[in-house]
Amino acid sequence: MKNDFSTGLRHGVPIGLGYISVSFTYGILAAGGGMPIGLVVLMSMTNLTSAGQFAGTLLLFSSAGYLELLLATMVINSRYALMSLSLAQKVSAGLSRPHRALMSFGITDETFTVASLEEKEVTFPYMAGLMSIPYLGWALGTFLGAAADALLTPRMQSAAGIALYGMFIALVLPVAKRSRDVLLVVLLAVAFSTFFRYAPFLQGLGGGYSMILSAAGASLAGAWLFPKEVEEVA
């Protein structure tokens, strides 16, 4: 059992290192927008999710209502439900509910992928080890980014505004390049959100609602037009 923990720790090192750079960017963005540094770090330590935090923070900066924030968070993070469900097949049936409830906090795109690729059953000590270093890296990077923001000139802060979007492009483009289905579905989502932003009668629609409708609408169209083959791992 103790062995599983150290195996998990080892598997988490590269994830944790990657998280430092992404959360550093998040820290700059959130502190740059005027969120106090303590709250920026609290966000990372309680949410542990990139797209959800970025989007939620942008919504908070636009003074969105809590309902809009809640719905947006649920749509963006709905993929975790699928990962959680998939992970449920990889753990021992006898694993207790408290253990399941605790280890689910550490489900992210990356830890899920690594845990899914494990040949053996995923145990509680393994998952605890796997999530430890990414969690620390995520918190540390956020703190460093938020602290570094004070050192940036206004022009550097303005340029940093594009950082998040650059990262999004880097996440999507390589996948869209290989999959025509993903490319078409993403283009549809972009068309929807551009329409919601500029159509004269829809400009009162909040950014969160526009994102939800665009993403859900395009994904729904994708699920009907290009359903994927069912695989074991999402």
Binding site: A51, L58, V75, F168, V185, V186, A189, S193, A216, S219
Partner: peptide, 13 residues
């Protein structure tokens, strides 16, 4: 659910 992360990122960008 598989398409959601990509469409979310596209619509946000």
């Amino acid at each position: 659910l598989d398409y959601i992360p990509f469409t979310v990122l596209g619509a946000m960008t």
